[in-house]
Design a protein around this nucleic acid. Structure first.
Lengths: 244, 244
DNA sequence: ACAAAAGTGTTTTTTATACACCCATGC
DNA sequence: GCATGGGTGTATAAAAAACACTTTTGT
């Protein structure tokens, strides 16, 4: 990192930071076919009583990823979890707790991108239970620059869907090819691919295992339940893949 | 961001941070066909007299990207520049200036990924001139976790090369299709594509403008000099593209 | 003349796209 | 029986991959 300014004298002072971690946690409701993001109601100033991304300030001895796991575990119980760093927002003035003259402590946010399974995820109700899944299409105004962070996270979701098997981190353990197709259509839009071609392509890749189980959902022929076979996927891990 | 712990009492203390910005600056020597990264010799403790990425600590009122630009401008004069955020490294103990008990101030690094043109970039010699381009294949041991950051940056370069027109930010303004092909081979390895197919594909994309100029480099037929036509590329900006 | 690098064209194989159509179930 | 969603197959177009061949220079 940095030179310390031992030689130069009239150097501007270094900023002091508190570092926060904010999680953009996505899941998908396969029943209602909606992409959801987890929001919490703030209890404290600033932005008290406004929705925000679940976040926390980093503690002594704690890594960034530890902090991300900690805040996630405080809000939600999950079996499966996909987590990766998203982006770091650190401009001056992004937190009203910073003094207006730009001196004094600054607040930096390292955001994380997380995927969980809606059906398996249990929200942890705390007090008045200010925690909820929001459809990404109906977002409220969020605290801080969280709308921007969320937008950035949603873009990441759309991108990853195309070349990475993240779909299986938000779908239930067992899913039909219709579920999978629906997920892709709701996130990527109607015209990304024909259903039957999508089917053929995905099956040919060889990491979707047919469980033999069937589900019937109203009218129509019952669908096979598939499972993501991570062992069969392993050799494809670093190859450029096209899911769409 | 964060709840402040107004209600809970026995909460571990929040960490205090200094935030550094470290740049992974790549360029390419088309003559010698090598990918280069800019390193600076540290003058101060810790890691005095060791090579490191050019970095700096963020000052009062300064944004992360501003800091990245500042340190870059201190080391190198460029006409062209590509810059984007890379990753944030913030685990405890990544800087020896942190006290060993993990209390006291911590050092976090937001790294940036930069591309410049080797021929146009002038290094700014300061004092004993501890600044140099290193081939990515012959890296010395670096200060802090900078080898890890650099590795991460190089992976980003390889990835971006495949779907993004970053090649034209490291190549000279005018280049031959051979130069372009050489760049791809040195970064991506020999067997990513046949030269003649690579040619045809790239030209069909329509954003390489033939200047009509020719260069002769030793034996062989002289090659046309091309220019990246950013206007012709604009409509393709958000489309999924394959360069390889 | 010939090696070396640039550039063009052709053939084959693979993949994408657009459909038409059959299958099994609920109502 | 027929609407509904699941599932298969086929014909066509496009793109990727392999490679043969021509062009223009330096020596």
């Amino acid at each position: 990192m940095p030179e310390r300014g031992t030689k130069q004298v009239n150097q501007p002072a270094l900023a002091d930071f508190k570092v926060g971690v904010d999680n953009v946690i996505f899941s998908v409701d396969t029943q209602q076919n909606r992409v959801l993001v987890l929001l919490v109601m703030r209890q404290d100033e600033p932005f008290s009583a406004q929705w925000s991304l679940p976040g926390t300030l980093v503690r002594n001895g704690e890594s960034l990823e530890d902090a991300a796991h900690r805040i996630l575990a405080e809000k939600i119980r999950v079996n499966n979890l996909y987590l990766e760093q998203l982006y770091t927002f650190g401009g001056p003035g992004r937190d009203p707790r910073e003094s207006p003259d730009s001196f004094g402590v600054r607040y930096l946010s390292v955001s994380y991108f997380a995927l969980v399974r809606f059906e398996e995820a249990q929200l942890i109700a705390e007090g008045v239970s200010g925690i909820a899944w929001y459809p990404v299409t109906e977002l409220p105004q969020l605290a801080f620059d969280h709308n921007q962070i969320l937008e950035y996270g949603y873009r990441r979701l759309r991108n990853k869907l195309e070349y990475s098997p993240v779909a299986f981190d938000v779908l239930p353990e067992l899913f039909t090819l219709g579920d999978l197709y629906q997920l892709y259509t709701t996130v990527l839009g109607e015209n990304f691919s024909d259903y039957s071609n999508f089917r053929t392509r995905l099956l040919k890749l060889g990491f979707l295992a047919d469980t033999g189980l069937k589900v019937s959902r109203g009218a129509g022929r019952p669908a096979s339940l598939y499972r993501f076979d991570s062992e069969a996927f392993a050799p494809l891990k670093n190859k450029p893949l096209v899911f769409i």
